[in-house]
Amino acid sequence: MIRTVLGELEPERLGVCDSHDHLFFRSVLLPGQELDDAAAALAEVREFAAAGGQAIVQWTPHGLGRRAEELPAISTQTGVSLVAATGLHRAEHYPEGFVEQVRPRLAEIFHHELTVGIGNSSVRAGLIKVAGGFHRLDEHATFVMHAAAEAHHATGAPIAIHHELGSAADAVLDLLVDTLAVPPTSVILGHLNRFPDARAHRDLAKRGAWLAFDGPSRANNATDPHLLDCLAELIDAGYGDRLLLGGDTTTAKARGVTGEGPGMSFLLTTLRPRITREFGADTAELIFRRNPARAFAW
Score class of each variant (00 low, 15 high):
P184E: 00
T249P: 05
Q101L: 11
L14T: 09
K129P: 02
R124T: 03
A252F: 11
L234C: 07
D170G: 14
R105I: 11
E260H: 07
R255Q: 05
D236R: 15
R26G: 04
H22F: 02
Q54D: 06
T60E: 00
L127R: 03
V102R: 05
A39G: 09
I109D: 04
H191N: 10
R274C: 05
E108F: 04
L6N: 13
L42N: 05
I128P: 00
L9C: 06
T78F: 00
L35T: 03
I188D: 10
F143L: 12
A205C: 13
I74Y: 01
V57L: 03
T276R: 11
R289P: 03
G280W: 00
G7C: 10
E10S: 13
T78M: 00
V182T: 08
E278F: 02
H135C: 08
E8P: 07
R136Y: 08
V45N: 06
R272E: 11
P158Y: 10
I2D: 00
I287K: 12
S217R: 15
H140D: 11
L180V: 07
D18V: 06
R46C: 07
G53C: 08
A68C: 01
G238A: 06
E278M: 05
I275V: 10
A41F: 07
T86D: 07
E278D: 12
P292F: 13
R13H: 11
G190N: 08
L192D: 04
P95I: 04
G208I: 02
E278I: 01
K253W: 12
A40E: 12
D197G: 10
T155G: 09
E113C: 02
G132I: 01
A85E: 10
A295Q: 14
H162D: 14
D178V: 01
V172T: 15
T223Q: 15
R66M: 04
A284N: 11
E12R: 13
R272L: 08
T258L: 02
L267A: 05
N291F: 04
L82P: 14
A50S: 12
A293D: 09
Q58L: 15
F195N: 15
H152V: 03
G256M: 04
G208Q: 12
A254H: 06
T185Q: 15
A55C: 05
L106P: 00
I74R: 00
A147H: 02
D236S: 12
L192P: 08
G126F: 05
R194Q: 14
G117Q: 05
P216Q: 11
D36S: 13
R199H: 14
L268V: 07
F48D: 12
T269V: 06
T270C: 04
P196F: 07
L175G: 06
S27E: 01
R290L: 15
L244C: 04
Q77G: 09
A169W: 11
A43W: 12
N220W: 13
H201V: 04
L88F: 06
G119H: 01
H62P: 00
E260S: 10
A200Q: 12
A84P: 02
A125W: 00
